[in-house]
């Protein structure tokens, strides 16, 4: 139904977000390389690799890091098909569209001409486009591996390692929890509206409908915030946030951390 396509695409977006989180929880429970490491090592190690990707100035080094990311994915039992479909293809499409004109408009040595010499492919343009695409693909693969192989509450606890304030971690945790509740509420509102809609709604009415749905969601959010505040107060919360950490580093975790730091350092040194 053409008239409700915007409702459908919004609901598809909601479902996709929820399915991604469910898939991530399922992968995080598997027995694999990344899953066997302490969450703090995973977060620190993968952040270090993302940083190494950003710092590397050589295409070969970035490609080597990409191969490393694929190997980590295989040993962590993350499906290559899933990565290809959900990550690599999306990043390639997005960055490819952005990088493509650079092949032609970056000033430099011409290596090929098209359209009777009016369009030049330059060596510098080709190099910059390849470097950008490789860098984005590799960085997004490491980030996705972190998301897929680590339960969200473990990521949050591990952020303490980077001295992220406890208040900020508490807010991130609460936001993450309520995102799903609000996604569900919004989905139900759109679904009920779609089931009551007959015929094609005019553009202004569609905009009003979406704004009203957002408005109801906003009122619900504020009410929810007040309820949570009262619930926190009734349990004796006075603003002092403490996050319990039950992580224990083992010898295997130190090996993992050493390997991550070695790989990142070598990449940064070779990619200068």
């Amino acid at each position: 139904m053409k008239h409700s396509r915007f409702i459908e695409s919004t609901m598809i977006g909601f479902t996709r977000a929820l399915s991604r989180v469910l898939m991530s929880e399922e992968i995080a429970r598997r027995r694999g390389l990344l899953q066997s490491l302490d969450p703090r090592v995973r977060v620190a190690g993968l952040f270090a690799l993302v940083l190494a990707v950003t710092l590397s100035r050589r295409l070969t080094v970035v490609l080597a890091l990409f191969v490393l990311a694929v190997m980590i994915a295989v040993f962590s039992r993350v499906g290559i098909g899933t990565l290809a479909k959900r990550v690599w293809l999306v990043a390639l499409t997005f960055t490819g569209v952005i990088a493509l004109p650079a092949i032609f408009i970056t000033p430099g040595t011409s290596i090929a001409t098209f359209l009777g010499g009016s369009l030049h492919v330059t060596a510098q343009g080709l190099a910059t486009a390849a470097l950008l695409i490789a860098r984005v693909e590799t960085a997004v693969t490491f980030t996705t591996l972190l998301i897929l192989c680590t339960a969200w509450n473990h990521v949050l606890k591990a952020l303490r390692l980077f001295h992220v304030p406890q208040g900020a971690i508490a807010m991130l945790a609460m936001t993450h929890r309520y995102v799903f509740l609000l996604v569900e509420n919004a989905g139900q509102m759109f679904e009920s509206r779609q089931s009551r809609t007959v015929g094609r709604l005019p553009g202004p009415e569609r905009r009003r409908m979406t704004a009203r749905t957002a408005g109801v969601l906003l009122s619900k959010s504020i009410d929810l915030g007040n309820d949570v505040y009262m619930a926190m107060q009734s349990r004796g919360f006075g603003g002092d946030i403490r996050i319990l950490s039950d992580f224990r580093m083992r010898a295997w975790d130190y090996v993992g951390l050493f390997a991550f730091l070695c790989a990142s350092s070598i990449a940064v040194w070779m990619g200068r």
């Binding site: 695409s9 208040g167 508490a170 309520y178 609000l182 553009g203 915030g225």
Partner: peptide
């Protein structure tokens, strides 16, 4: 009060997150 700010900001952040996912119909189809 920090105890008041934490839930309010958190829930509003969740709301902003969900609103970013809305497909808004714009003039021009």
């Amino acid at each position: 009060l920090l105890s008041r700010v934490v839930p309010l900001i958190s829930v509003f952040a969740a709301f902003a997150f969900v609103v970013m996912m809305f497909n808004l119909p714009l003039p021009g189809g």
